[in-house]
Computed example of a mutant assay.
Amino acid sequence: MPSSRATPETGPGDDRSTDLIRWAAFSCFLVPVVLLWYGTSLAGATGTALGLAAVTAVCRVLLRRSERCAARLLDEDLDEDEAPQAHHRGRHQRTGTGSHRGRRHSGGNSPVG
């Protein structure tokens, strides 16, 4: 029986990162207003607004870049899943008798002395 809950489809303006950027832009407006309300100088509030806007812009660029890289990696993984390949274990995932090579001492938990 299919689930009654539909899977959300994300569009170009309907994802979490867009919401995050919107909240950050809102704070770029709200923080200077609050600073002015509490008596900070106009120059100080303006500097704060510009600083927050710069940080928000850099974060947006990095977030979009990260999303593009993640999407590209996901596409590559999906392409690799279609072609059968030999199972590969990383160098730290050995099993069997040779799995503890490189230890400094062979005697249980006794300290090296």
Rank of each mutant, 00 (worst) to 15 (best):
D19V: 08
V34F: 12
R68G: 00
L78D: 09
G113Q: 13
Y38G: 05
H88S: 08
D19Q: 05
H92E: 01
D14F: 09
L35E: 14
L74D: 12
G108E: 00
V112G: 06
L20G: 07
E76I: 07
H88N: 05
S106D: 10
R104L: 13
R68E: 02
R68D: 00
S41V: 01
S110R: 14
E67G: 09
A54T: 11
D75C: 07
S3Y: 00
F29S: 11
S4Y: 05
D19M: 08
H92V: 00
T18C: 04
G51E: 01
R91V: 00
H92T: 04
R89S: 01
A24T: 00
D75P: 04
G98Q: 06
P2S: 06
I21P: 00
V58R: 15
G39L: 00
T40Q: 13
A54E: 03
E76F: 02
A6F: 01
D15H: 14
A54C: 03
L35C: 14
P12G: 05
T10P: 05
R60F: 03
Q85C: 09
T56V: 09
V61F: 13
E67Y: 03
R16N: 00
G51Q: 04
L73N: 15
T95G: 02
F26R: 15
L73D: 12
L52Y: 07
G102Y: 02
G98Y: 04
L42P: 00
H100R: 10
H87Q: 12
H105N: 10
T40D: 11
S106T: 13
R104E: 12
S99L: 06
A49N: 06
H100I: 00
R5V: 03
T7D: 10
A83L: 08
A57M: 08
L78C: 10
L52V: 03
E67I: 10
T56Y: 01
A45V: 02
